[in-house]
Design a protein around this nucleic acid. Structure first.
Lengths: 337, 337
DNA sequence: CTGAAAGCGCTTACAG
DNA sequence: CTGAAAGCGCTTACAG
C-alpha cells in the first residue's frame, strides 16, 4: 500500500536505481535530480520497506534483548538503559522473553542479540550474541565460551553481605529466592551456604514459585504462609530486590520490625530500593555501564564478526542501608546512597 | 549463512516449493516426504528468514509498542502486560520510544502499533494503530478519530481526588507534574484547577523538567529546591506515581511527615505504591484489561482492516490509602488494596 | 551520470 | 502429488 521506489521512479520517469541512490545519499546522482526525488518521495509518503532492504543487505537493524524473567524490576531498568542507548543508534530494540520464542524455533531477523542470562543451548543463533552472566566460578568451566560475555561477579559482595549479617549476631538467616537462583553454582547461594556452614549455622531456604509474572504477589503468599508456619528468621537474604520489597510488606503486615526483628537484604539495587523505609541493603552493579559495554561488544562484533571473543567482568558491591543495620551509627556512612 | 529452503531442497533433490509447503504444514506433500524435509531442515539448523517471508506475505508478525515516556514505571507495567500477551500470540514486540524513530522517518516493518499516548501527527503509518489516550473532554473534538482508540477517563477520579483532599481541610494543594501533563486539556490538571477555583484557592504548579530518563532524580532536585524556597504545601497532587514516590524521599529527608504535614497523591497506581509507607493514594486503571483490549482491537483490525473504527473507555478510580488520610478511621476501608 | 538486470529467501498461483 | 516460475521491494554490480 505505501509508495515504493518504483512508484517514485515512474512518477519522475527515471530508473529505480537512481531513486535508491538518491534516497540513500549515495554518489552518482545529480543534485537537482536528488532534490526532485526526495521531494517526490516525501509527497508520496514514501517509507522504506525495511524487510526488502534487510533481505538484500542481510541487516535488519534490529537487536533482540532477551530477558529470562521479564518480571523483574531489574529487567525493566536494563531495558530502559538499552532503550536509551538504542535511541542514539540506527538500531531498533525487540524485547524477547528468552523462555518464549527462542524455544519455538529460534530468533530470526535480528542483527544480534543481548541475552540477560545464559543463552539456551537450543537457541540456534546465526547472529552475534552477547551474554550477561553471573559468575559461576568455574562451575561450567568445561563449556567453551561461545559468545562475547559480560560476567557479573556476585561472589565477593555476597560474602560481604553474609559477613555483615553474621557480624550483627543474626543467626537464623534464610535464603529467599526463585528456584533457578537456588542452585549450587549460583554465586549468591554458594556464598550463603558457605558462610552459614562456616558459622556452624543451618541453611534455611524459602522458595518462591512464580509461574506467572507478578512476583511480588507470589512473595506475599509464600512468605505469609512460611512465617506463620515456621516463625520469623533474623534475616532474609533475598536473591533480588523485588523479593526483598515483597518481604517488606509481609513483615510489616505481620507486625515485624525491619531490621530490628528481621533484617532484609536484596540484590540488584533497583532505583526503588532507596525510596523504601527502611532503605534496602542490596548488591549493586553499575547497570548502565554494563549495558553500554554489552552494546559496544555487540555492535563491534556486528561490524567485524572475525573479532576474537571478548569477556568483561563487573564486580558487585554491597551497599549497606538501614534494612540490615541494627546499630544506628554504623549505617550513617552509607545512608546517602 | 543459515540454511535456506533451497539448501534443503537441493539436499533431498526436490523443489523449493515442496519444502515451503512441508515446513508450513500445508497440504500437497506426502507424509513421508514431509517427514524427510522436516528432519533435513532440523539437521541443517534451518531457521526461516522472517524478512523474506514478510516481503512476500506483507506480514512481519511484529507489533510496535510506542511509549511516550519510557521512563515511567507505569510504562514498564504496560510493557510487561504486552510481553505476556504477546508470548501467547504469533507476534513479537518491538518497544519504541515514540519521541524517537517515529520522528525520524516513520516506523516500518510492523503489522501494527499500539501507541500509549497520542500518535504524533507526522508519524505516517501504513498499518493499523491503536491509541491509548487520556480523555481530553472534547478539547480536540474537531479532530477526527483516525484510529481505534482506548480512552482513559481521569476526570471523575481526579475530581474525587481533589474533593478528598479539600474535605480534609487541605488548603495549599500543589499540582506536581512534568510539563506535558500541565496543559489545560489535561484532565488531571483541569480537575485540579477547577476545584481549586471553586474552593477559592490559588493554583500552585510545580514543574518537573526531566530531560533525561531518571525522573525520580529530577523530582528530588526540583522539590528540594522548591520546598526550601516556598515552604511545604499541605498536599501534593502528582501526575504520576513516580513523581509521588520521588516526593516521598524529599519530604522524609526534610523531616516532613506524610500525610499529617504534607499529603501525597499519585496517578497510575503502580504495583510499588502499595509497598511504600505510607501506602500511596492513587488513581487506578485496570491496566491489564486495557492492554488486552488494545491488543484485541489491534489484532482484529489486522485481520480485517475494513472494520469500522472502535473506541472504548475505561474509568479511573480513586484508591484512597494512607498517604492522604489524616483521619485514621476513614482509611481503614481501603487499606486492603 | 544513468538504465536494464540480477538476486536476497521466501510464498503462491500456474501448469503438468 | 510435484516442478518451474513469478514476484514481494529493495541494493548493487554491470554495462553503456
Amino acid at each position: 500500500m505505501p509508495a515504493t521506489q518504483k512508484d517514485i521512479a515512474q512518477k519522475i520517469g527515471v530508473s529505480q536505481r537512481l531513486v535508491s541512490y538518491a534516497l540513500n545519499g549515495q554518489a552518482g546522482v545529480s543534485d537537482a535530480m536528488r532534490q526532485r526525488i526526495l521531494q517526490t518521495a516525501d509527497a508520496l509518503g514514501y517509507v522504506p520497506n525495511r524487510m526488502a532492504r534487510a533481505l538484500v543487505t542481510g541487516r535488519t537493524h534490529q537487536i533482540a534483548l532477551c530477558l529470562q524473567r521479564l518480571t523483574s524490576t531489574f529487567a525493566h531498568e536494563v531495558t530502559q538503559h538499552f532503550v536509551k542507548i538504542v535511541m542514539d543508534s540506527p538500531y531498533q530494540l525487540m524485547t524477547v522473553n528468552s523462555m518464549g520464542p527462542v524455544h519455538q524455533g529460534g530468533i530470526s531477523g535480528v542483527d544480534g542479540a543481548i541475552f540477560f542470562g545464559s543463552v539456551p543451548p537450543d537457541a540456534v543463533t546465526h547472529f552475534p550474541v552477547v551474554e550477561i552472566l553471573n559468575d559461576t566460578r568455574g562451575f561450567h568451566a568445561g563449556e567453551p565460551i561461545r559468545h562475547d560475555a559480560i560476567i557479573l561477579i556476585f561472589e565477593d559482595a555476597s560474602r560481604a553481605a553474609m559477613k555483615h549479617l553474621l557480624e550483627q549476631q543474626m543467626r537464623r538467616i534464610a535464603f529467599v529466592s526463585i528456584p533457578c537462583l537456588m542452585e549450587l553454582y549460583e554465586p549468591r547461594y554458594r556464598a550463603y551456604g558457605t558462610l552459614m556452614a562456616a558459622a556452624g549455622l543451618p541453611v534455611e531456604k524459602i522458595v518462591i514459585e512464580s509461574r506467572d509474572l507478578l512476583i511480588r504477589d507470589c512473595v506475599h503468599q509464600t512468605l505469609e504462609k512460611y512465617f506463620s508456619e515456621h516463625g520469623f528468621p533474623d534475616a532474609l537474604f533475598c536473591s533480588n530486590d523485588d523479593i526483598a520489597i515483597g518481604a517488606y510488606r509481609v513483615l510489616r503486615r505481620m507486625g515485624r520490625r525491619i531490621p530490628h526483628e528481621t533484617a532484609v537484604l536484596g540484590c540488584d539495587d533497583i532505583e526503588e530500593s532507596k525510596d523504601h523505609v527502611p532503605a534496602l541493603t542490596s548488591i549493586q552493579f553499575p547497570c548502565e555501564a554494563i549495558c553500554r559495554c554489552a552494546w559496544e561488544m555487540l555492535t563491534a562484533r556486528i561490524e567485524n564478526p572475525a573479532l576474537p571473543p571478548r569477556t568483561k567482568s563487573f564486580k558487585g558491591r554491597l551497599v549497606v542501608r538501614e534494612s540490615t543495620t541494627r546499630k544506628r551509627i554504623a549505617s550513617l556512612v552509607n545512608l546517602k546512597n
